[in-house]
């Protein structure tokens, strides 16, 4: 299936310069692993960094720096080409790395209505989590204070505006109040990152929120 929803220039550039919170880095790296279009756009931002490195006013290294470097590489074996990781599963390498394996390695917690989630270990400035939404089920209605990225890994979901399949990424800012529903056919698994806690509109989800860190 062709990916239709891509990363924004702002996110790709922030990733290229290294200014994204860890949780967002994970979502960007996972999407780029699945999407040649965004890999190429990311490379074009990296090329700007290359041009800046080339043009920069250099600052001389210490006197013995080159000798030290040559002595150092003497003891350094070069890595060799490796076959690409053949992941039979649904997680691209950067995500599998965080989870410590594929789907079977995820430690889910139920959050009601058949929906499950697993918080991934990242720095605290933003949160990354895996979401498991049974086919046909809605994710609790929510808005959010910051930005929310949702990347589909399996199945598909739709909200009021659009449809998102495997590889598609939804970028929602605080303006968006939406009710994503997993489409019939296959349970939907997503990787999501938020840079501020979600705020749920219903009372019960709001009470449950601190408990589940969503």
């Amino acid at each position: 299936m062709k990916i239709r929803h891509h990363l924004s220039d702002q996110l790709l550039m922030a990733y290229s310069v290294g200014q994204l919170p860890e949780a967002f880095n994970l979502v960007v790296a996972t999407h780029v692993s699945m999407c040649d279009e965004c890999r190429a756009r990311l490379a074009s931002f990296d090329a700007v960094g290359g041009a800046l490195i080339e043009e920069i006013d250099e600052i001389a290294m210490g006197e013995a720096a080159l000798e030290a470097a040559l002595a150092r590489i003497d003891g350094l074996p070069q890595a060799t080409r490796t076959e690409p990781l053949k992941t039979a599963g649904i997680f691209p390498a950067p995500l599998a790395d965080y989870v410590g394996g594929d789907l079977s390695a995820v430690r889910w917690r139920r959050i009601g209505g058949g929906v499950k989630q697993a918080i991934l270990p990242t720095g605290r400035s933003a949160t990354a989590r895996l979401l498991y939404i049974p086919a046909g089920v809605a994710v609790p209605d929510h808005g959010h204070r910051g930005m929310e990225l949702t990347l589909v890994l399996q199945g598909a979901f739709a909200d009021e505006n659009d449809r998102f399949d495997r590889g598609d990424i939804e970028i929602a800012d605080e303006e968006v109040e939406h009710t994503p529903v997993a489409l019939a056919g296959e349970d939907c698994i997503c990787l999501a990152a938020t840079d501020a806690p979600l705020r749920f509109r219903g009372l019960v989800p709001r009470l449950a929120q601190p408990l589940f860190r969503i």
Binding site: S16, V17, G18, P21, E22, N25, L26, V28, A29, T30, V32, S33, R39, L42, A43, D46, A47, G49, G50, A51, L52, I53, E54, P84, L85, P92, A93, P94, L95, D97, Y98, T122, G123
Partner: peptide
Amino acid sequence: ATWVFTIARNKRIDALRKDRRAEPEEL
């Protein structure tokens, strides 16, 4: 130069921010 930039940027993140940085799958 571009390749050197990506290595230097990752080093900066390591050294100054101590955050882990996920990288896309290598091709």
